[in-house]
Computed example of a mutant assay.
Amino acid sequence: MTETPLETPRAWAEFTDPAEPGQRLRVDLTWLTSRWRCIFGTGCPGIDADEPDAGCCTLGAHFTDADDVARVAAVVERLGPDEWELRDAGLEEGWQVADEDASTTRVVDGACIFLNRPGFPAGTGCALHQHAVAEGVEPLTTKPDVCWQLPVRRLYRDVEVPDGTTYLEVTLTEYDRRAWGPGGHDLDWYCTGSPLAHTGGVPVYVSLRAELVELAGEQAYAVLARLCEEHLLAVGAVVGAGPPGPDGRLRLPLLVHPATAVAAASAQDCRSCRIP
């Protein structure tokens, strides 16, 4: 399926952070109520056509700060050879490299050093992520910030209002191709705009609850979730249906992520073609 256009109408909501009165949250309802889901290992073509089994792990993960590095380092010490395919190389030669003023995970044979390749007994995928699942903890506690936040993007902006007061604006939106920088347009495929990845059983604000709570806090998430629920009710009222899903009903672009709409329409077309 063709990716949907980047420049599409969006529905946004703003509210004062209940836990931090000096900042306001600006949330992308179109994205947060979309049916995006990670399809790594279940049809993901990968961002590099030459490494289809690597998903979005073909680039080294950039660490945000020392705490980010320390969190991953603590997990590295606990990873056994049965969990991490490239453990020997990582421990002997290092699992991170300097990148100007920051550092990244090493790239080995076309993908991140923490990526277990097809055929590894523990399964294909991120060793850090798999360790979290095995331990029964959220992957955000074991992976680099950029990895667990993807594909949610958090932005900060200082805003001055006409009366001279200021506040910090925190935006939560889609980490689309443009968020990768100029090179994002050269990715062979990317999930957030692809209907292939908009087949989730629940909206993003539900499936990524843990990540959104970590990014915004419990109190702000509670408001965000309520606004998303009200948004979905509004969508249903406009089109005479319930929350958006693979039911084939037309959706207004302003209210529904275009990739979710295309995925829903495609699912309906497939069902209508079935022979009883």
Rank of each mutant, 00 (worst) to 15 (best):
P182T: 11
P144G: 02
A265T: 09
T8Q: 14
D101L: 10
C112D: 02
C147K: 01
V152N: 15
V262T: 08
T2W: 11
A132M: 10
V133D: 14
C191Y: 00
P258L: 10
W189A: 13
P182I: 09
E92W: 04
L115S: 00
F40C: 06
G240R: 06
F15T: 09
A66N: 10
R157C: 08
C112K: 02
Y221R: 01
P276R: 12
Q149Y: 04
D48E: 07
Q219K: 15
C191V: 03
C191G: 12
P139F: 06
P121R: 01
G240T: 06
D145K: 10
A259W: 00
G41H: 09
G242M: 06
R249N: 04
Q219F: 07
D17E: 06
W189C: 02
D67W: 07
A234M: 13
T142C: 13
V170N: 03
E14P: 01
P253Y: 05
A263W: 00
A210C: 09
L155E: 15
W95M: 08
T58R: 04
L252Q: 14
P276G: 11
C112S: 01
A19E: 13
A222C: 03
D17G: 06
V107F: 02
C56A: 10
W12A: 07
L250V: 14
T171G: 13
V256L: 00
G200M: 03
R153D: 13
I39R: 11
A225T: 02
V108S: 06
R226E: 15
T104I: 13
A220I: 05
E92L: 13
A11E: 12
V76I: 11
A102V: 07
G242N: 04
A49G: 11
A222S: 11
G136I: 05
G22E: 13
E3Q: 12
L150R: 10
L6S: 12
L254V: 14
T173V: 10
E92V: 11
C126H: 04
R153V: 10
G123K: 09
F63G: 01
G60L: 01
A263Y: 00
G22V: 06
L115Y: 07
G94H: 05
T16W: 07
V202G: 04
A61Y: 04
A241F: 08
T141Y: 13
W31V: 02
R274K: 14
I275T: 14
V76E: 09
P253W: 05
A222Q: 08
C57M: 12
T30V: 06
E14M: 12
W148V: 04
E160K: 10
Q268Y: 15
W31Y: 08
V107Q: 00
G248V: 01
G200N: 00
C126I: 06
Y205G: 03
C112Y: 02
C273W: 14
L128E: 00
T166G: 09
E14D: 14
R209S: 04
T105E: 00
A132Q: 10
R26H: 13
C191E: 01
V159D: 00
F15L: 10
V202A: 15
V137W: 11
A264Q: 02
L79E: 03
V69Q: 04
V204A: 08
L208H: 12
E138D: 15
V239R: 13
R154Y: 01
H231P: 03
C56T: 06
T104H: 09
L233H: 11
A49I: 06
V152C: 12
A267W: 04
L172Y: 14
D188V: 00
